[in-house]
Design a protein around this nucleic acid. Structure first.
Length: 654
DNA sequence: GTTAGGG
DNA sequence: CCCTAAC
C-alpha cells in the first residue's frame, strides 16, 4: 500500500501536465525526454508490485508534496494538471512542486508517497550537486519492483499492471482534509523562507513529521493495521519498532505527531486514539470542516510560505535514515524481520543478560509462590495455622491478608479487600532457610521453633556472635524511624499474633530487634508494575563488616554462601547476596581511599554514616589484591587460607 | 540454591 | 537493596 509518487524533474520548467495517471503518459511526455528522470506516481502493492496511482491518490500525494516542499513552489493548476504532481527542479536548483488542486484525503499512502518523493528528490539533489554517485536507494526500489513486474527505465518505474484501486489505502487512513490554508497558517512560521536547494532534500525530508502533523483534519490511526502503524512509526521516529501493540503504536505516533511540530501540538487533540486537530484555531475561519474535501484550489502562496526551515530542522530525521528505511520497507515487507538491534547492542559485558522477561517471570513466580503454598481454602480452615512457608509472614489473621501478588490481584480466598501489592512480603528467603519450614504448620510450635532457632544460632554463630549487639548501637534507631511508612504493611505482614516469626527469632542479634527492626526498615517502593516492593534497609554495622571481611579472608571472596554460613549465621537478614554487595562496596571504598588511607577514615564520611575504619578498608584492599593476584581457581579454593593469617591479626583487633 | 552484575 | 541471569 505504499504509494510512490513520481516526480518529474525538469531543469527548467514547470511541470505541466503530468498526467500521472496510470497511463504511462508521463513517461512518454515530452518533458520526460528533456528530463532524464521521470517519476511516476505509483502505489506499491503489498506484494511488491507497483501499481499506477489513481487520481485520487495522486491528489492525495499532492497535498503532501505541497507541504513537504517548503521551498517548493506550488502551483495549482486547476486544469488538467490536477492529478499530476511534479517536482521540478528549477535551474536555480530549487525544487518546485506543482500540484494540482488539493486533494481530499490523505492516508498512509500519502505518507509513503512523501517518503518516496523525498527520496527521489534527495537523490536528485545529490546527483545534481555532486555529480558523483547517485544514491541508489531508489534504484533498489525500482529494481525490486522490476523484479516483480515493473520495468524500470532510467530510474523510472513504469507500471504495467492494470490500475487497481487499493482499498487499503482509502480504508486504512481516514484522512480528512480540512482547510489547507488554515493548516498552513498554523504551521507556518515567520521565517519561512526559501530553503536552499542544497538543503532542500533534508529540509523536505525533515518536513515529514510536521507535515503529518500539519495535515489537517484527523488521522484515524485506528484503522491502520499494525503493519501500517509500524510504517508510520518508522517514518515518524526514524526507527523501526517491533512492538505489536496497536494501542501503543497509535499512542506513540499520535504523541509524536502532536509533539513533532510545535504548532501542531496546539492544534491537535487526541481522542480515542485519533489525532484530531482542533480546527478551531486559524482554520476555523476558513474552511474548517474536516469532512470537507477541499474543493477549492489551494492557494499556492500560502503553501509556499508554509514551512519554515526551523520547523523542519526541529523535526528533522536523518536523510539517510529515511532513505534506508524506505529501501528497507520496499525490499522487505516482512516486519517480523526487523531487528531489535537496539536492545541487543546494549548487552555486553561479562554476562550477557537476556532480555528481561520480567513480567512473565514475575507473574509466574508470584503465582507459583503464592498459590502453591497456600491453599485458599485451607488457610481459612487452618485458621491460625500458617499454611505456607511464606505464610510465616502473616499469619492467619486474615485470610485476606494472604494476597500477596504483585499487582492488585485479589486473593481467591477472601479476596478481599486486602490487596497487597507486593510480593516481596515474603521476599527474602532468610527465614525459610532456617526454621520457617519447620515451623510452618504449627503455630504453637513457634515457641519451640524459637528455641530451636536459638540453639541453632548459638551453634552457628561463631565467637563473634555477640559483637553484633555491641555494635548495634545508635544507628539502628534512626533507621527505625523510617518504619512508620512501612507500618501498614508491616501489620499485614506480621499482624499476627503473638507468634513470633520464626525468622525473626532466628536472628541472633536480638530477638527483639529483629522482629521489629526488620520490618521497620522496610520501605515500600512503587514499582513499574504498579505493585509495590518492599525495600529493606539495614545499615551494615561495623561488626558485620568486620565479620564480612573476616569471612572473606577465611573463605575467599565469592564464597558468599559459605561466609554467610560461617560468619553470618546469626544474621538472618544478611543474605549471601547482601554479603556480596557489601563486599563490593567495601572494595570500592577501600580502593577509593587508597591514595590517602590515613585521612580516609574521617573524611570520607560525609553523610554521617559511620566510617569504616581504615584498618578494615585496608584489609579489604589486601584481600582484594590477594584475590586478584591469585588466579581464579586458586583464589576460589582458599586464598583465604593465606588471608586467614592476616585476618587473624585483624580479628584480634576486632 | 549460588554467584555475579546491573540498577 | 533489589532483580536477573547464569551457573
Amino acid at each position: 500500500m505504499e504509494t510512490v509518487v513520481g516526480i518529474e524533474d525538469n531543469d527548467d520548467g514547470k511541470f505541466e501536465d503530468s498526467g500521472l495517471d496510470r497511463s504511462s503518459s508521463a513517461l512518454s511526455s515530452p518533458k520526460q525526454i528533456s528530463n532524464p528522470i521521470v517519476y511516476k506516481l505509483v502505489r506499491v502493492e503489498g506484494d511488491g508490485r507497483l501499481v499506477p496511482a489513481t487520481d485520487d491518490e495522486v491528489m492525495e500525494v499532492g497535498d503532501f508534496l505541497e507541504y513537504e516542499n517548503s521551498e517548493m513552489h506550488v502551483v495549482a493548476d486547476t486544469g488538467q494538471s490536477l492529478e499530476c504532481i511534479s517536482i521540478e527542479r528549477s535551474s536555480s536548483g530549487k525544487l518546485r512542486l506543482e500540484c494540482s488542486e488539493g486533494s481530499a484525503e490523505a492516508d498512509l499512502g500519502k505518507l509513503n508517497a512523501k517518503l518516496q518523493i523525498l527520496q527521489k528528490v534527495k537523490e536528485e539533489e545529490k546527483q545534481r550537486i555532486s555529480c558523483g554517485s547517485p544514491v541508489h536507494s531508489h534504484v533498489n526500489v525500482d529494481s525490486q519492483c522490476s523484479a516483480d513486474k515493473c520495468p524500470v527505465m532510467d530510474g523510472k518505474v513504469q507500471s504495467e499492471t492494470p490500475y487497481q484501486d487499493n482499498p487499503s489505502i482509502a480504508s486504512s487512513l481516514n484522512y480528512t482534509h480540512s482547510n489547507q490554508s488554515g493548516s498552513m497558517d498554523q504551521c507556518s512560521r515567520p521565517s519561512e523562507g526559501v530553503i536552499e536547494s542544497g538543503s532542500s532534500a533534508s529540509a523536505i525530508h525533515s518536513n515529514l513529521k510536521p507535515d503529518l502533523s500539519m495535515s489537517d483534519g484527523e488521522i484515524c490511526l485506528d484503522k491502520l493495521s499494525i503493519r501500517e502503524l509500524h510504517e508510520l512509526f518508522k517514518v515518524t521516529f526514524g526507527r523501526e519498532t517491533t512492538v505489536k501493540d496497536k494501542q501503543w503504536l497509535k499512542r506513540r505516533i499520535a504523541m509524536s505527531l502532536t509533539n513533532s511540530c510545535d504548532v501542531s501540538a496546539t492544534n491537535f487533540i487526541i481522542k480515542d486514539n485519533q489525532i484530531v486537530r482542533k480546527f478551531v484555531e486559524e482554520s476555523s475561519g476558513n474552511m474548517n470542516i474536516s469532512s470537507l474535501i477541499s474543493s477549492e484550489n489551494m492557494t499556492e502562496e500560502e503553501d509556499i510560505n508554509l514551512k519554515d526551515s526551523s520547523a523542519v530542522n526541529a523535526c528533522g530525521i536523518d536523510d539517510n535514515q529515511v532513505i534506508s528505511e524506505i529501501r528497507l520497507r520496499n525490499q522487505n515487507t516482512e516486519y517480523g524481520l526487523e531487528d531489535e538491534n537496539n536492545e541487543t547492542e546494549q548487552r555486553a559485558a561479562k554476562r550477557i543478560r537476556r532480555p528481561t522477561k520480567r513480567y512473565i517471570e514475575e507473574l509466574s513466580e508470584n503465582e507459583s509462590r503464592e498459590q502453591n503454598p497456600r491453599l485458599p481454602i485451607s488457610n481459612k480452615s487452618m485458621g491460625l495455622g500458617q499454611v505456607s512457608s511464606t505464610s510465616y509472614v502473616r499469619p492467619g489473621r486474615n485470610t485476606f491478608s494472604e494476597v500477596r501478588t504483585y499487582g492488585m490481584r485479589f486473593d481467591s480466598l477472601g479476596g478481599s479487600d486486602v490487596q497487597i501489592p507486593c510480593v516481596s512480603l515474603i521476599r527474602r528467603s532468610r527465614p525459610r532457610k532456617d526454621m520457617a519450614s519447620l515451623m510452618k504448620f504449627h503455630p504453637t510450635a513457634t515457641s519451640e521453633t524459637a528455641k530451636l532457632s536459638n540453639k541453632l544460632i548459638e551453634h552457628s554463630s561463631d565467637a563473634v556472635g555477640e559483637i553484633p549487639d555491641k555494635v548495634f548501637k545508635p544507628r539502628m534507631p534512626a533507621k527505625f524511624h523510617q518504619s512508620p511508612s512501612s507500618e501498614p504493611e508491616k501489620e499485614k505482614q506480621c499482624p499476627v499474633v503473638g507468634t513470633i516469626e520464626p525468622w525473626q527469632e532466628l536472628r541472633p542479634k536480638r530477638a527483639d530487634l529483629p522482629g521489629h527492626t526488620s520490618d521497620d526498615n522496610i520501605v515500600t517502593v512503587p514499582t513499574a508494575k504498579g505493585g509495590m516492593r518492599r525495600k529493606h534497609h539495614r545499615a551494615w554495622t561495623l561488626v558485620e563488616v568486620i565479620k564480612l571481611v573476616e569471612g572473606v579472608s577465611r573463605c575467599g571472596a565469592g564464597r558468599w554462601s559459605e561466609i554467610k554460613r560461617l560468619s553470618f549465621a546469626s544474621y538472618s537478614y544478611r543474605t549471601s547476596v547482601d554479603l556480596k554487595d557489601k563486599w563490593r562496596n567495601l572494595l570500592k571504598a577501600s580502593f577509593a581511599m587508597t591514595p590517602a588511607p590515613a585521612d580516609e577514615g574521617i573524611n570520607s564520611r560525609k553523610h554521617g554514616t559511620a566510617p569504616i575504619p581504615e584498618k578494615i578498608l585496608l584489609r579489604v584492599r589486601e584481600l582484594a589484591e590477594m584475590n586478584s593476584q591469585v588466579p581464579p581457581n586458586i583464589s576460589s579454593n582458599k586464598v583465604a587460607a593465606g588471608a586467614g593469617s592476616v585476618h587473624e591479626g585483624r580479628s584480634g583487633y576486632l
